[in-house]
Design a protein around this nucleic acid. Structure first.
Lengths: 357, 357
DNA sequence: ACACAATATGGAACCCGTTCCATATTGCAG
DNA sequence: CTGCAATATGGAACGGGTTCCATATTGTGT
């Protein structure tokens, strides 16, 4: 039954369409259409349309007549009709797992601005761990509601994506041969983090790592981090996080767990939010940062600048990720076959005051 | 010339519509339409449509035939055509000045979830201080691209809004008689902040206040704060912020300015991000929080929980604001005349460790 | 003066569903 | 067996634009 809209609420709203609106007949509250303009200006609809789109010939005098008619009728072209003909809406759906995660917030911010520059609008979907929401947005591609999808979500089965033969760009995730991926050089990120922590003399580092259920480029950073640490003779305590959990509550719980276990460490590597929470708990237990414990966080979003001391971080070039995602989706929509063109950007080190010796 | 799309880029993208697609004729890559389904199932288009929408009679046998045809053709209804007929898209535009401000991020997060529950999609626009972007989205209402607008932006001339006779809900701003406002009881917020700071013995409080250019409910908190402080005999240093600036860079600059001036204070009241930056600078200058300086921030977004010590804050019920906004826009779209029904929600106090004596 | 291009215009066909209306068949009460 | 409601179906008209084609007029070169 996949051709039917599933969400009852959506139906509840859209079904109410029945109230057929009667044009002209009595009620004069209807909006002026191109025909009304044509009639008022004593020209054909084609002429009005040509003028609106600057396509084909329209005499200067006719232009004036039409302009006046449009002004008098307060005419605005109905984009829905245009969309139908063009089979385009100029809307791109952006899927993120959560808007409360600063990484995605910054991504969204840049994507929106970039899309705007290309003349696209952004439809935002925060899937909140619900994979059916993800499915629904994917379906909107088929339904012609959006022209493309940029997905930063890691929940749905890859097979679902492979079915869709429409413009899709993936952020930091492999979704099959046809779907281009935009990601950073996570291996380098893992290495940088490891070098930084080992350089300031850490002997035992707490390493928060993502779950390995999903095939994603970001695992590289964990492998490389572990490898480098081992090479430097630094011990690591690996703490595996649940899959697809990005909420603060969960991070708090993780940190409480770590401290309840009484783990001993002099360095921490984890995603921004988690590293920060861990640092705060460290401070609360009357240790000094960075004297007693060093911190390097991953992502380098704005929150790393908002804590005291400022966090040393591996910075993902989020603006770059956003720009590349939009560039790719634009090219896919344009029909150019840039498929399989994966984009890998460089990370950088933000030196804060959580790693100085 | 207001009926013409102004942004050249938008045009660049949409103009390319010219590639007329030829159905059937040779190229078999075209998508199946309802006619193809009807033909394949040997029924009329009306019957297929009735089945899709569960309206009117369709015999069980006919149903089966159509189902098979749909499956074989991998048919998905074109929502664009439906939109045209229904004059609805189910999309709501949400306008915010900036996505980097945690207040708006949380708002967006809740609004998205709530809209989803009503069966709406969210189009997000971050106007980034550009009022022409705001205008453009307002225009999308007329163009039938979105069914309604929820605006948290404070830049455009109010007159522009008054012209639009379509569903609009304003967050924390008066936009004229017809446009319902959702806001919190800022007066109570100002009072709470003042009581809290004066209760922990502050004698001279630094008060960051918004610019007064725009008529907005939030000014109340500043008036009330000042009034209460005066009543308690607490001195205040008023620092007026630029209008419509929410970025971190600006806040940093403001804080630097404050410390450069060598102002003396033992309490601070300002918006989350600013209070936090101010607190961090205080810590960096080797003062103790809350011993030497007390802090109360406004908004109470998640970042107040992310700093050490945790910030005492006046919490806006962002989820409530979001829910009410969506409820109102839904009712406006439904045609019920709930205009002029302004919603005021209560604030609450989050007790952190920046105010204890 | 003639041919042909450039300029101008109206209107039909189309995009793809939805709804209404005309028509047909079946079921059941009187 | 007649009459009327319920069931069932096809297709035209519609929603509001866009484009193409047929047609007309003006301009230019020879």
């Amino acid at each position: 039954m996949k051709w039917q809209v599933e969400r009852s609420d959506a139906c509840r709203y859209l079904k109410r369409a029945g109230e057929r609106y009667k044009k002209g007949e009595g009620g004069e509250n209807s909006v002026a259409g191109i025909k009304d303009v044509a009639k008022k200006a004593h020209v054909g609809v084609g002429t009005v349309s040509r003028m609106l789109n600057d396509s084909g010939y329209v005499a200067v005098e006719t232009r004036k007549k039409i302009e006046i008619a449009m002004k008098e009728l307060d005419y605005t072209p109905n984009e829905l009709a245009r969309n139908l003909y063009r089979k385009k809406t100029g809307i791109i759906a952006v899927l993120v797992p959560s808007v409360s995660n600063p990484f995605f917030v910054e991504f969204i911010d840049y994507v929106e601005a970039e899309l705007y520059d290309y003349g696209f609008k952004m439809m935002l979907c925060s899937t909140q761990q619900e994979s059916n929401a993800e499915l629904e947005y994917l379906d909107m591609l088929k339904r012609h509601i959006v022209d493309g999808v940029i997905t930063g979500v890691h929940s749905l089965d890859v097979e679902e994506y492979k079915k869709v033969k429409k413009p899709i760009v993936a952020l930091d995730r492999y979704l099959g041969e046809d779907i281009p991926v935009v990601a950073v050089n996570h291996k380098e990120g893992g290495r940088l983090a490891a070098e930084t922590l080992s350089a300031c003399g850490c002997k035992c580092v707490l390493h928060f790592r993502g779950a390995i259920e999903v095939e994603s480029p970001y695992h590289e950073r964990h492998y490389e981090f572990e490898r480098c640490m081992k090479a430097h003779g630094v011990r690591t305590i690996c703490y595996e996080l649940e899959w697809n959990r990005f909420d603060f509550k969960y991070y708090q719980q993780v940190v409480r767990d770590v401290f309840a276990k009484g783990l001993e460490f002099d360095g921490v590597f984890g995603v921004d939010r988690l590293a920060i929470e861990c640092m705060n708990e460290t401070i609360r237990s009357h240790k000094k940062v960075p004297r007693d414990v060093k911190f390097v966080s991953y992502d380098g979003t704005y929150i790393t600048e908002m804590v005291e001391p400022k966090m040393t971080a591996i910075v993902q070039p989020i603006e770059g990720l956003a720009k590349e995602s939009v560039r790719l989706i634009h090219e896919l929509i344009g029909g150019r076959c840039y498929k399989n063109e994966n984009v890998i950007l460089d990370v950088s080190l933000q030196t804060g005051r959580t790693t100085t010796v």
